[in-house]
């Protein structure tokens, strides 16, 4: 299996700043995006991304191209760091949880409505079991193939399909009102 990162990983391990920069530019946005979706917290997501790269610098000298691509390994590290943080959150519940999505004053402002809907989707995604959320993030948002996503989650492709189906079914139930609104908006736009 050809690993597009192999060369840069080897050079970065030898202290090549350009190769390290290339790895960061290539993977940082996805690491941050993944962690943000998993944790729903921008600052924590940046901490996770930084921690992933600390592991990269530590492991790069020992890295040997094997069964999994370097990017797959990075995703596994990021997901495990997110799982750890989510576990710690469950152990110490946040008293402010949920305040961010509290309903404000009604407004006809379309942007405000969209933010409210997006907020509900974030909450529904956050309420999913973490592996279902990770599966949806990888396939829908990162547009990974089923094989790539299954490798990153360390499950079979059939198990991935099951995680996705269960996750999306839960979202459909939790977001019935948002989906109705979206259909209403689309119908309204089609009529006008």
């Amino acid at each position: 299996m050809l690993d597009p990162d192999e060369d840069d990983v080897r050079k970065a391990a030898a202290g090549d700043a350009l190769a390290a920069g290339a790895l960061v530019r290539r993977h940082l946005p996805r690491m941050v995006g993944l962690a943000r979706r998993m944790l729903n917290d921008a600052a924590e997501a940046e901490d996770v991304a930084q921690e992933v790269f600390l592991r990269v610098w530590k492991e790069a000298p020992k890295w040997r191209p094997g069964a999994a691509k370097f990017e797959t390994w990075m995703h596994r590290v990021a997901l495990n760091l997110c799982y750890d943080r989510l576990r710690r959150r469950r152990e110490t519940p946040d008293p402010d949880a949920g305040l961010a999505v509290a309903d404000g004053a009604p407004s006809a402002n379309a942007a405000w409505l969209e933010r409210q809907r997006a907020s509900k989707v974030h909450v529904a995604l956050g309420a999913l079991p973490e592996r279902q959320r990770a599966a949806i993030t990888l396939v829908h948002f990162e547009e990974r193939t089923n094989i790539e996503a299954a490798e990153m989650l360390e499950v079979s492709v059939d198990a991935l399909e099951s995680l996705l189906a269960r996750g999306r079914r839960s979202l459909k139930a939790a977001l019935a009102d948002v989906i109705e609104d979206l259909i209403g908006d689309a119908d309204g736009a089609a009529r006008s």
Partner: peptide, 11 residues
């Protein structure tokens, strides 16, 4: 399926 996709795309 598109309804769920559209909801997800809001985020």
């Amino acid at each position: 399926a598109r309804k769920i996709d559209a909801a997800l795309d809001l985020t």
